Amino acid sequence: MLDSLKQAGKNIGRDLSRTWENISEGWRELLNHSSEALTQFTRYKNDEPGEHGSSGMRPAFPRWSLLAGEMEETDKEIVVRVELPGMEKEDCHITIDGGILYLRGEKRLERTTQDSTYHVMERAYGAFQRTIPLPRNVDTDNAQASYKNGVLTVRLPKLGGAKGRTIPIA
């Protein structure tokens, strides 16, 4: 009986160790893939919900949210796409300076009624700035931006030669 209890303890320990390793691996992967997309939102006093939940406390707005994006490079241009759901194009501003694309904006809370109670609040609101390093020098004078279906697309023509050059060793 004592031996079977010892074996059960070892099995539980091994299973807990595997579980912890899987959780740790998942967090590392999440942080690795989302660290650039994780964006801090600065809230304003009037952004807080006006209603209290059953506990009497206001639900806290998240201060951080993911602004998922991607950067694609072709022979002629760099294309940056960033998901900005719930925003209007007028609330977004783009600046390019020193090889860095700066994206700033504000996501506003819109309530259709004041006589409701929030039970879950997972969306971040407020002002934000996102910094995206560009892999090449770009022609800022011919850059173009568009916004459709919650996705901001910035097209940046590359400066210099369209392709890299291979140099033979003599």
Rank of each mutant, 00 (worst) to 15 (best):
D3E: 14
S4M: 09
S4T: 08
S4G: 00
K6N: 02
K6I: 01
A8I: 03
N11D: 15
G13K: 09
R14W: 05
R14S: 06
R14D: 11
L16W: 05
S17Y: 04
W20A: 12
E21V: 01
S24C: 02
G26T: 07
G26H: 02
W27T: 07
E29C: 00
E29H: 00
H33E: 15
S34Y: 10
E36C: 03
E36D: 14
E36A: 12
E36K: 08
F41W: 06
F41M: 08
T42S: 11
T42F: 06
R43W: 04
Y44Q: 09
Y44M: 07
N46T: 05
N46E: 13
N46W: 09
D47I: 05
E48K: 10
E51S: 14
H52D: 05
H52R: 12
S54H: 09
S55C: 06
G56F: 07
G56R: 09
M57Q: 15
M57A: 12
A60K: 15
P62G: 04
R63P: 00
W64K: 06
W64F: 15
S65H: 11
L66T: 04
L67Q: 13
L67D: 13
L67S: 10
G69P: 14
M71T: 15
E72L: 14
E72T: 14
E72F: 10
E73R: 14
T74F: 09
K76W: 10
E77P: 00
E77A: 14
I78E: 13
I78G: 12
V79D: 08
V80Y: 10
V80F: 09
V80P: 12
R81W: 11
E83L: 12
E83A: 15
G86V: 02
M87E: 06
E90S: 14
E90T: 11
E90G: 15
E90Y: 05
D91V: 01
D91E: 13
C92G: 00
H93I: 06
I94W: 05
T95L: 08
I96V: 15
D97Y: 04
G98P: 03
G98C: 01
G99R: 04
Y102C: 02
Y102D: 03
L103C: 01
L103K: 01
R104W: 03
G105K: 05
K107L: 06
R108Q: 03
R108F: 05
L109R: 14
T112G: 15
Q114M: 06
D115R: 09
S116F: 12
S116E: 15
S116T: 08
S116G: 13
V120K: 13
M121V: 11
R123L: 05
A124K: 01
Y125M: 02
G126Q: 04
G126M: 04
G126W: 04
A127N: 03
F128W: 12
R130G: 02
R130A: 03
T131V: 13
T131R: 10
P133M: 03
V138M: 00
V138C: 02
T140W: 02
T140L: 03
Q144D: 10
S146K: 12
S146I: 01
Y147Q: 09
K148M: 07
T153Q: 14
V154Y: 12
R155W: 08
K158Q: 08
L159G: 03
G160Y: 07
G161E: 10
R165N: 09
R165A: 07
T166H: 06
I167F: 08
P168Y: 04
P168H: 03
I169T: 11
A170E: 09
